[in-house]
Amino acid sequence: MTSAEVTRRRAMGAGLGALAGALAGCSGASGPVRRLRLATGPEGGPYNAFGQALAQAVAASGHRIEIVPVSTAASVNNLRKLDDGSVELALAMADAAEDAVLGREPFPRPTPVTALARVYVNYTHLVVAADGPVRSVKDLAGRPVAAGAAGSGVQVVTERVLRAAGLSGAPAPAPVSTPAPTSTPAPTSTPAPTSTPAPTSTPAPAADERPLGLAASVSALREGSVDALFWSGGVPTPALAALARELPLRFLPLDDYVGPLRERYAPVYTAVTLPAGVYGLTEPVGTIGVGNYLMARADVPQDAVRDLLRVVFDRWRDLLREVTAGARLEPRFAISTGEVPLHPGAVAHYRSVYG
Rank of each mutant, 00 (worst) to 15 (best):
W316E: 13
S219N: 11
E246R: 10
P260T: 14
L309W: 06
V323Y: 04
P211T: 09
A276R: 00
T324P: 04
L252E: 09
R210Q: 14
A266I: 00
G224Q: 04
V347L: 14
L274A: 07
V258W: 09
A228G: 09
L243Q: 07
S225K: 11
S219W: 00
L320S: 01
V235M: 04
A348S: 03
A242E: 13
R250Q: 13
V340P: 05
G291I: 07
E339S: 14
P236F: 09
Y265A: 03
S219P: 02
G338E: 11
Q302E: 15
E330K: 01
G234V: 04
R310F: 05
L309K: 06
A228Q: 07
L212D: 08
P341N: 01
R222K: 03
D227E: 14
T324M: 03
G277S: 08
A348H: 01
Y279E: 05
L319H: 07
S217Y: 04
V347D: 08
D256I: 10
E322M: 09
L281T: 03
D227F: 05
R310T: 15
W231A: 15
P301T: 07
L249A: 04
R328S: 15
L229E: 04
I288N: 06
E223Q: 14
V285A: 05
R332S: 12
P275F: 01
L249V: 07
D255A: 13
G291L: 03
R245Y: 05
L274V: 11
G277F: 07
V278P: 01
P344R: 02
A298C: 14
R264S: 15
A271E: 15
A304R: 11
L294R: 12
E209I: 10
G326A: 07
L212P: 06
R262N: 06
A304V: 10
P260M: 13
D303P: 13
T273M: 04
A304I: 03
Y257N: 02
E283F: 00
R321N: 12
A346F: 06
L249R: 00
A220T: 06
N292G: 05
V290D: 09
N292K: 05
P260H: 15
R262Y: 02
Y293L: 15
R332A: 13
G277D: 05
L252H: 08
P238F: 00
D255R: 10
P248R: 02
A304L: 08
D303W: 11
Y279H: 01
P341V: 03
A304G: 06
E322Y: 10
I335V: 15
V218N: 07
Y279P: 05
Y257L: 08
V218R: 10
D227A: 10
P253A: 02
V272D: 06
R317Y: 04
A241I: 06
D255F: 03
